[in-house]
Structures are given as C-alpha cells and as structure tokens.
Amino acid sequence: MSREAMMASIRESLGRTPGQAISAPPEARIRIPDVDEESRVGQFLAALEALNARTFVAPDAASARQYVASLTLGKDALASNAPLLRELGIADLDGVRCGITQLDALREHAARCDLGITSADFALADTGTLVMFSSVEEARLISLLPPVHVAVVPRQKLLSGLDELFALNPEPARRSSSMVLITGPSRTADIEQILVRGVHGPGEIHVVLL
C-alpha cells in the first residue's frame, strides 16, 4: 500500500524508526496584547472600514433591529438560527426567512436571496475579522452565497486578535467541523491587479456591533 511505502521512505530519509519518540516541539507562540474594550472597538471599526465593510455601532437592541430592517427593506433575506437574531427581533423582520435546518432548503434559499444575516462566535479587533463556527445555529452558506452579508456581533465577543482566538480555542476542531475567519468582502485582484469586490462570496458586508 502507498501509505506503508511512503512512510518507509520518509523514515529512511529522516533516519527515523517506527514509533520513535520526537523531541519537544517549539512552544506555541501566543502573545495576547493588553487592549481595553474601548480600543478594541476602535481598532475593529477602523479595520473594517479600511476593508470597505460598513459598520454600525448599535447602542441598544432596537437600533440594531432598525439598522438591519433598513437593509432588508424590500429585499429577500435569510437569517441564521443564532438565538441573538431572535432576541433582537431581527428574525421576525419582513422579508427575513429564519429557522431552516434542512440542507436542501438552505441551499435553495441561500442561493436565491439578496442578503444573509448571521451573528458571529468571535470577532478580531486588529484585523476586522468575523469568526464563524459551523453549527445548527450558523450554517456556512449564509455568509457565503448571498451578495450581501450582515453580521450582528455583541461587543463582548470582540477579541484582540488571532492569539486570543487560539488561546480560547486551542483546538477548534473540538467545537465544529468548520471554523471560518472572514476579513472583509470577497475580493480579487487577478486581472491587472485591479481590486474587484464580490467575486464568489458577498461583495458587501455590514457589521452591527452591539
């Protein structure tokens, strides 16, 4: 079998024997900067705006709902099953479909609708990143197929950056089969290095920070 042949060849090249112990790996390098919440919010918003994402800081639930309502007006939207979206009344807005747990229905709606609405498990302040774990609450396609993605994120979910994310989630695979980091709208520069947004993923992202 190829596995045995490859393993034998690797071990021969490295001068190792089956089951031989390894030396300790370099210690993982995790450095969490000390950034207060106010600065995180500032960094996060600045990073998002630099990426051409729209931001809205909602002082309360009603204003968050109102902002999202202004985006869904007259549109066909698909919301994830995140409890937060129900709590905020976003799931009940006109034109918003919510509560899908079947794959076929999800694919059909996500491919057709104008707008996908999700929450996020975390957000990274320094890079303006949304972190999404796949689950019954968050389907992967909602932040991917529609041309516009709206994410509603409580500010407590705002981490300083990658180091804090991996400190809190040293093994993301334990939690979900998929963790996706989203940093701004889908883009390409493949033709003459001209920046074009919205290639395969959403070309427009709105982040509502609670």
């Binding site: 899908i100 794959l103 990274l124 796949s134 089969s177 998929s178 996706v180 980091l181 989203i182």
Partner: peptide, 22 residues
Amino acid sequence: GQPLTVYTSFLAGPRREGEIDG
C-alpha cells in the same frame, strides 16, 4: 500585503451531527 486574507477556512472533517451544511 494583507494582515489576513479575506477567508481563512479551518476544516476538520465532514459535516457533523447538528450542523446544517458542509
């Protein structure tokens, strides 16, 4: 020259029980 590219996917196996897609 991007601090992070737009998408970073960390994919650990097929869709699990309870997950909707994948």
